[in-house]
């Protein structure tokens, strides 16, 4: 079964490699599983997901990330993506002048064999069906990527890309933030539709309300760069009720014990 294995990972900013942000994080995600990661602001959740995707701002100072048992750390970001990784950005970039249609077309084309040309009719048909599913107006295809999109439109557009590219592992960074109730449901349904034996998900979120729709198999609490507590879906409910101070106190107690 395909797996994404994060092994004792240390991540720092490339500019300050001696100051780790992610500090020895270990987690294995298999296809068919949804892992929710929750944790206070600034704890390193986005850093973790961007570093796995290969963002040049970050360096992995030790540890490893393996996709199906093979390290991906030597791979370029585009190679990682084609190997089956997908990062749904917390803050998706705006790219004026590049239309959604051309952008996704390039991404789909990149997955074809050398010399193989994309079937434009089939591509548009596929694209439109996914857009309909996510209730995205077809007119969006000619709009520039994320330019002038509302927060919710950006997030929906991330899910559209995920639906088109069919990754094996999706790292979803606060895909729920900025969504109103209706948009949240549409996005969650979109993810649920993809959920299954072929997809593993790391779902970074601050809110239980997303987990009402996408019920996680595991919940992890991340604090100060590492996972400090893991459990099932009830852990999220407990967190919602007690807040992070509860986890912090537990940690402090463990440290003095």
């Amino acid at each position: 079964m395909p797996s994404l294995e994060i092994r004792d990972l240390f991540v720092a900013l490339a500019a300050t490699p001696d100051k780790p942000i992610v500090k020895g994080l270990t987690l294995t995600i298999r296809t068919g599983e949804v892992h929710a990661i929750m944790g206070p602001n600034g704890t390193g959740k986005s850093t973790l997901s961007k570093a796995i995707a290969g963002h040049p701002d970050y360096v992995i100072t030790s540890g490893d990330v393996l996709l199906d048992g093979k390290s991906i750390l030597e791979m370029e970001p585009d190679q990682r993506a084609r190997a089956g990784l997908f990062l749904a950005f917390q803050y998706p970039s705006e790219i004026p002048g590049v239309s959604i249609a051309n952008f996704l077309r390039a991404a789909v084309q990149a997955r074809l064999a050398e010399g193989e040309d994309l079937d434009a009719t089939a591509y548009y048909k596929h694209l439109y069906s996914k857009m309909d599913l996510l209730k995205i107006d077809r007119k969006f295809t000619s709009r520039s990527v994320n330019e002038g999109f509302s927060g919710g439109e950006k997030k929906r557009c991330e899910i559209l890309q995920m639906a088109m590219l069919e990754p094996t592992f999706a790292l979803m960074d606060e895909t729920d933030s900025g969504l109103d109730i209706d948009a949240l449901r549409i996005v969650a349904e979109g993810v649920e539709a993809m959920r299954g034996e072929k997809l593993g998900v790391m779902l970074i979120t601050h809110y239980q309300r997303l987990l009402d729709y996408i019920v996680p198999d595991f919940v992890h609490v991340m604090y100060d760069g590492r996972i400090v507590k893991s459990g099932d879906k009830t852990l999220a409910l407990e967190l919602e009720a007690k807040g992070y101070d509860w986890v912090k106190q537990e940690l402090a107690a463990a440290a003095t014990a």
Partner: peptide, 9 residues
């Protein structure tokens, strides 16, 4: 990076 993260070389 955004483009590359979608598999675009």
């Amino acid at each position: 990076f955004y483009l590359q993260a979608r598999g675009i070389a």
